[in-house]
Amino acid sequence: MLEKIDVTPTWGEFGRMYTRLAESQEVKAIRELRSEVAKAMAAAEALKAVQQSFTEEQHSIAANVMAVELTKQGY
């Protein structure tokens, strides 16, 4: 059986890549990524909408993931 390796970037890795493209004025590449940025912003709003219903454990998981992803982007 052949194992599959997921090489999809996390949103933090995507954010770092997108920022670098923007800073180097790679306009064509940035335009191609618009739908991905839209998904990230929609996901952020969805998280915001449901976070008040989270348990303490869910809050902790979300906070840890956010910290990891922000670190990937240099924050």
Score class of each variant (00 low, 15 high):
residue 45 E to P: 00
residue 62 A to E: 10
residue 7 V to S: 12
residue 27 V to I: 13
residue 37 V to S: 11
residue 7 V to C: 11
residue 54 F to Q: 02
residue 24 S to I: 02
residue 73 Q to S: 09
residue 63 A to E: 15
residue 54 F to H: 06
residue 25 Q to L: 08
residue 9 P to C: 12
residue 74 G to P: 00
residue 57 E to H: 08
residue 46 A to F: 05
residue 31 R to N: 14
residue 24 S to K: 09
residue 6 D to T: 03
residue 10 T to C: 05
residue 13 E to W: 03
residue 57 E to A: 13
residue 19 T to Q: 14
residue 48 K to D: 15
residue 72 K to P: 00
residue 60 S to W: 05
residue 58 Q to F: 01
residue 34 R to I: 09
residue 42 A to G: 06
residue 52 Q to D: 15
residue 61 I to M: 10
residue 70 L to S: 12
residue 47 L to Q: 11
residue 19 T to M: 12
residue 61 I to W: 12
residue 37 V to G: 09
residue 41 M to K: 13
residue 61 I to V: 15
residue 35 S to E: 15
residue 32 E to Y: 10
residue 11 W to S: 07
residue 24 S to Y: 06
residue 32 E to R: 10
residue 58 Q to P: 00
residue 31 R to I: 09
residue 60 S to P: 00
residue 42 A to E: 15
residue 26 E to A: 11
residue 16 R to L: 08
residue 72 K to L: 07
residue 38 A to I: 09
residue 27 V to Q: 13
residue 58 Q to C: 02
residue 1 M to G: 14
residue 12 G to K: 02
residue 30 I to Y: 04
residue 7 V to D: 15
residue 16 R to P: 00
residue 67 A to P: 00
residue 17 M to K: 09
residue 64 N to L: 08
residue 12 G to T: 04
residue 4 K to V: 05
residue 58 Q to G: 01
residue 53 S to L: 06
residue 54 F to A: 02
residue 42 A to R: 11
residue 72 K to Y: 04
residue 73 Q to V: 04
residue 68 V to R: 14
residue 31 R to F: 12
residue 26 E to W: 01
residue 69 E to C: 01
residue 25 Q to W: 10
residue 18 Y to C: 01
residue 33 L to G: 02
residue 69 E to Q: 11
residue 40 A to V: 08
residue 15 G to A: 15
residue 20 R to P: 00
residue 36 E to W: 03
residue 22 A to Q: 14
residue 15 G to N: 11
residue 30 I to Q: 08
residue 11 W to A: 07
residue 14 F to V: 01
residue 31 R to A: 14
residue 10 T to L: 06
residue 52 Q to I: 03
residue 54 F to I: 02
residue 71 T to H: 15
residue 24 S to A: 12
residue 21 L to T: 01
residue 4 K to M: 11
residue 40 A to N: 09
residue 14 F to D: 05
residue 35 S to Q: 13
residue 18 Y to N: 06
residue 19 T to E: 15
residue 64 N to D: 15
residue 23 E to S: 08
residue 5 I to C: 05
residue 67 A to D: 13
residue 69 E to A: 04
residue 75 Y to N: 14
residue 17 M to G: 03
residue 56 E to G: 03
residue 18 Y to G: 00
residue 69 E to H: 03
residue 48 K to C: 10
residue 55 T to G: 06
residue 21 L to S: 06
residue 4 K to N: 13
residue 8 T to C: 03
residue 59 H to K: 11
residue 57 E to M: 04
residue 35 S to V: 10
residue 42 A to K: 08
residue 37 V to H: 06
residue 5 I to L: 14
residue 23 E to D: 14
residue 14 F to G: 02
residue 26 E to V: 02
residue 60 S to T: 11
residue 58 Q to L: 04
residue 54 F to Y: 10
residue 25 Q to A: 13
residue 11 W to V: 04
residue 50 V to I: 10
residue 51 Q to V: 01
residue 67 A to T: 08
residue 28 K to L: 11
residue 34 R to Q: 15
residue 44 A to M: 07
residue 62 A to H: 06
residue 39 K to S: 13
residue 51 Q to N: 10
residue 50 V to C: 06
residue 21 L to W: 09
residue 9 P to Q: 11
residue 3 E to I: 06
residue 16 R to G: 00
residue 65 V to S: 04
residue 52 Q to K: 13
residue 58 Q to Y: 00
residue 65 V to L: 12
residue 45 E to A: 11
residue 25 Q to H: 14
residue 17 M to C: 04
residue 68 V to C: 08
residue 33 L to R: 02
residue 33 L to Y: 07
residue 72 K to G: 01
residue 45 E to I: 02
residue 17 M to W: 09
residue 29 A to N: 07
residue 21 L to V: 00
residue 75 Y to L: 13
residue 64 N to A: 14
